Simulated scan of single mutants.
Amino acid sequence: MQKPIELRPPEDPRNGPVLLRQQLLAAGYNDNAIARMKRGGVIRPLRGGAYVAAEVWERLDEVGRYGLRCRAVLGQAKAPVVLSHVSALPEYDAPTWGFDLVDVHVTRTDGIRGRRARGVQQHVGTLRPADLVRVNGVPAVTPARAALDTVMLGCSEASLVVMNDLTHRGLASEAELREQYVEMQTWPGMSAAEVLLRLVDPRIESVGESRTFWALYQQRLPRPVSQYEVKDSAGRVIARLDFAWPELGVWLEFDGREKYEKHRRPGESVADAVVREKNREDLVRRVTGWRCIRITWADLADPRRLAAIIHRVLFPAA
Rank of each mutant, 00 (worst) to 15 (best):
K3C: 12
R8W: 13
P13K: 03
P13A: 00
P13C: 03
N15A: 01
R21H: 14
Q22F: 12
A33D: 14
A35Q: 13
K38G: 00
R47C: 10
Y51G: 02
V56T: 15
W57G: 10
R59K: 15
L60W: 06
Y66C: 08
L83P: 10
D100I: 04
D103H: 09
H105R: 06
G111E: 03
G111H: 05
R113G: 11
R113H: 13
R118H: 12
V124T: 15
T126V: 15
L132E: 06
V133R: 02
V133Y: 01
R134L: 12
N136A: 03
G137P: 05
T150M: 08
D165G: 03
L171G: 11
S173P: 05
E174L: 12
V182E: 15
E183Q: 15
Q185T: 05
A192K: 14
E194H: 13
E194A: 15
L199K: 04
V207E: 11
W214V: 10
Y217G: 11
Q218V: 09
R223G: 06
S233T: 14
I238K: 11
R240S: 02
R240Y: 04
W245Y: 11
P246D: 05
G256D: 09
R265C: 01
G267P: 06
V274P: 10
E277C: 09
K278H: 07
V287C: 02
R291S: 14
W297P: 08
A307E: 07
I309F: 12
F315W: 11
A317F: 13
